[in-house]
Design a protein around this nucleic acid. Sequence first.
DNA 1: GACGGGAACTTTTGATCAAAAGTTTCCACA
DNA 2: TGTGGAAACTTTTGATCAAAAGTTCCCGTC
Lengths: 219, 219
Amino acid sequence: MPRKFQSQTKKQPEHDVIYQALKDMILFGDFIPGQPLTIMNLAETLGASATPIREAIRRLTAERALETQENRRVAVPHMTPALLEELDFLRLTIEPELARRAAPHVTPDEIDALERHDDELEHAINIGDVKLYMKANYAFHFTLYQRAEAPTLLKVAESIWLQIGPALRVGCGRFGTAKLTDQHVETTKALRNGDFDRVSTSIREDIIQGMDFVRHSLK
Amino acid sequence: MPRKFQSQTKKQPEHDVIYQALKDMILFGDFIPGQPLTIMNLAETLGASATPIREAIRRLTAERALETQENRRVAVPHMTPALLEELDFLRLTIEPELARRAAPHVTPDEIDALERHDDELEHAINIGDVKLYMKANYAFHFTLYQRAEAPTLLKVAESIWLQIGPALRVGCGRFGTAKLTDQHVETTKALRNGDFDRVSTSIREDIIQGMDFVRHSLK
DNA sequence: GACGGGAACTTTTGATCAAAAGTTTCCACA
DNA sequence: TGTGGAAACTTTTGATCAAAAGTTCCCGTC
């Protein structure tokens, strides 16, 4: 078997598949803050046995995407003003940096891909599809961040987004996606112009707006 | 049973105990970079069965303290210049901030405790006890950071330290602890004077020195 | 000697189940 | 009515084992 095809054929372990599935569900708002999750129920729903479910849950707990309560039950964490403040600080220190580092490595083809994600995001806002909005928004940010070649920073960013996902979803549910104007055009323009500082600052603006939305929807 | 004593008596799950044990071993240099770990071997060594070991490993993998290779084996990650650069950036953005946030909440009693950790660190340097040095150093930083009441930032800091632990240990093994001068007196002084900015900047200095040591020992 | 293939071996993985932990229900009794 | 506590029930947890995945070693062939 040629080495280049191995990664496609090599079977992913079940616990990894489940981790990815749960991660997406948290990221794109399938769970609401505070929602309890039971191993048994997840095993039934996802068609797996308890062991791989537990491993996936431990990973997500370590990433603060889930929390285990004192009675051993697992739940989606609630958003609080204090947590939001911490996440605000983290996003503003990590993500503009990721964007700045990514900028020099983004190819014209990849900018096209970013614009397609942005078009999808626009479309989602227009038709009011919250989940599609969240997916397109995630895709835009993380295809950019991926190019930073900074896996450790990227991992921190993913953890942050996992913690925001559920709260963002309820915010969109309450106020719709209407209030969310699109900040991403600025970013792609700056990428085309090779203006790396502006890539970073435009992401910063996007974060400020996004977190304001979450903060507002918390009240 | 009175509620206030529950947390002391409530039995910790095995996977949690193992997680803590492995975490300490990584943090204080019991493993060297690149060292492979097998579930079977850990199960035997730690006197447990595979299931809780696997859960602990998944958590530590999520925290980048361990990595699973493409062949499903688990190993302690190697330190690389690129990783060190990322960790440098993260430490410098997260830890001075934790120190600054903690400073106003640290009581005189707690400053005394910090100084005791620092004495122990001095003592460890004098007798050349690497592991004691690492424990005292960790205790100093994290008793301070804990008071920041910023659990999410704290978790990021812990993940960073877990990634540095093994490399720091080999550095100390090669050069001894002699080169590590004690920067912590500055921090405790600033705490006593209520000079919160200087608490933050002195931690910054400490980080720069510590990371220089690791960088130097990489070559 | 170098290479390919397969047998023997080791390790990880996922399903299962009994035991432990935690929750709920309900009834006796004040 | 309200309280305590046992019983029934649910969920998590850890041990175990068979199957899958991965590695090593050896032998026959070139």
